[in-house]
């Protein structure tokens, strides 16, 4: 399953510059709102689901080479964070749905834990 399908199926808003999302295949999924956990737990090329929209999420995703961050619950990163994500090549996706819903849908689509 590729990122374009995920964006379409979950009706995600793409916050960063569009890319060829159909060519991006996430390895797995991960969720936590504590960045210290993410830094030690998320797998390379995974999709990270979180309601944390602070700019540090971009640095963490870049460090771990994550594919995309799905920001849930209507949390919204500020423009500087989105600019930083574009710079780092990190895809930021947003939804008003709660994390539990998003993770359930990702699992339905075949994404598994890393």
């Amino acid at each position: 399953m590729n990122l374009a399908q995920i964006i379409q199926e979950l009706h995600l808003t793409v916050l960063t510059e569009p890319q060829d999302f159909a060519a991006v295949e996430p390895s797995s999924g991960y969720t936590s709102d504590l960045l210290s956990c993410v830094m030690s737990g998320a797998a390379k090329h995974s999709v990270w689901v979180t309601l944390q929209a602070h700019s540090n999420i971009v640095a963490v995703a870049a460090l771990l080479e994550l594919t995309a961050i799905i920001i849930t619950e209507g949390a919204m990163p500020d423009p500087a964070t989105i600019a930083k994500a574009n710079q780092e090549g990190i895809t930021l996706l947003a939804t008003t749905d709660p994390s539990f819903h998003v993770i359930g849908r990702l699992w339905d689509l075949g994404l598994r834990a890393g």
Partner: peptide, 11 residues
């Protein structure tokens, strides 16, 4: 801060 945001925001 370190648990939640991982590191001190650099900005």
């Amino acid at each position: 801060l370190l648990e939640i945001l991982g590191f001190v925001p650099v900005e």
